[in-house]
Design a protein around this nucleic acid. Structure first.
Lengths: 196, 196
DNA sequence: ATGATAATGGACAGTTTGTTCGGGATTGCG
DNA sequence: CGCAATCCCGAACAAACTGTCCATTATCAT
């Protein structure tokens, strides 16, 4: 009883996901039509709608697969999932390295080019990573953990975007150092520090 | 020789901008069609295309007007434009207050609901504000000013979004305190602070 | 008043979207 | 192997949206 996979269906879905990725690299997400996708994937129109309700559904399903894969312990991608719990930014260095290697893909996903859905999905994935690495106790209950997580994720994406747009020549380690400096100690080391 | 304004054209444009704002509040930007806009504005189809190339053009033009207005010294909105130069986050308190008062509008613009163009335009406006308030000298040239500006803007938008989504009950002053705390001093006051 | 400018409504071809259908191909399983 | 279940295909469809054109009417500036 193969619970769910017909090879044909699996091939079709893989072809569609592949086509989506290819076309996003080429034209960006917003500019894509379902027509483009099924042409690229060489799949019938009705077949597409038999699997997904539209291009957004296809995109979401792709991220769902990615998230499942990251969650899977026996996956290679779970390298940083050790949850060291002593460095709340433990993920950053590896992520910047990864981003440098797959710059094209990151560029299409980050900074608006990927659309609102993509941005949101990426935030969810990163939030999960950051949450696992964050120490369970924070001095002073004035700042909710949840806010801290969002703050870190936002800062990371900002850094990534700035890197790609303004200083693509920098090394991952240099960018990581800037990121960690800003997030850990904030602005005060950089300015006169009078006001507070 | 009135250099550019025919009253009819002005009325048409105003109606279109008004319609766009109304519909964005109701349905969000992405879901809008040009058809919706001209119906709401009660303007002929050909008239629309005589003024703008599409809905994105209309949106951009709206932000252009806003930016000009903010730049204008005799405008009321230029209250914080004094460029105090001693507090790099001087803008924040007033902005959080403003956001609380016009929460509906902010919600439609922030957090994906406004589309990539809106997000980008808002970043441009905020970047300009932050840049003006930032001291011209930073200790250590390791961190580019430009990066700091983006970092602050990103943190502000993250904070705003978190506020709306998770804790809409908080007071502007409370949110501002959290924002300033995180941006000025970073994470280290909150954690064990061993690693560095 | 009058020439210039703008708005109108309608029509147009070209896309895109979702849906439906019957015929044909592949698959899983006995 | 053989066969029924499942999936894919191609075509066609109505509906909606997009830009662009034009002839006509209304409004403007002076």
């Amino acid at each position: 009883m193969p619970r769910e996979i017909d090879r044909r269906a699996a091939r079709t879905r893989k072809a569609l996901h592949q086509a989506l990725l290819t076309l996003m690299l080429r034209k960006g997400y917003e500019a894509l039509s379902v027509q483009d996708i099924i042409d690229e994937a060489d799949v019938g129109r009705s077949t597409f709608y038999a699997h997904y309700t539209g291009k957004e559904d296809l995109l979401r399903s792709g991220f769902q697969m990615l998230r499942d894969e990251l969650k899977d312990p026996r996956s290679a991608g779970a390298a940083a999932a050790g949850g060291s719990h002593d460095d709340p930014l433990g993920f950053s260095a590896a992520m910047f390295e990864h981003a440098a290697r797959y710059a094209d893909h990151y560029r299409t996903m980050i900074g608006g080019r990927g659309g609102a859905v993509t941005e949101n999905e990426i935030r969810l994935i990163l939030s999960e990573m950051v949450r696992q690495e964050m120490p369970p106790t924070l001095y002073g209950d004035a700042i909710p953990r949840d806010f801290v997580v969002q703050f870190i994720v936002g800062a990371f994406l900002t850094t990534l975007n700035w890197w790609f747009e303004r200083k693509p020549g920098l090394l991952p380690s240099e960018v990581d150092a800037m990121f960690r400096g800003m997030v850990l100690d904030g602005l005060s080391p950089l300015i006169g520090d009078q006001p507070r």
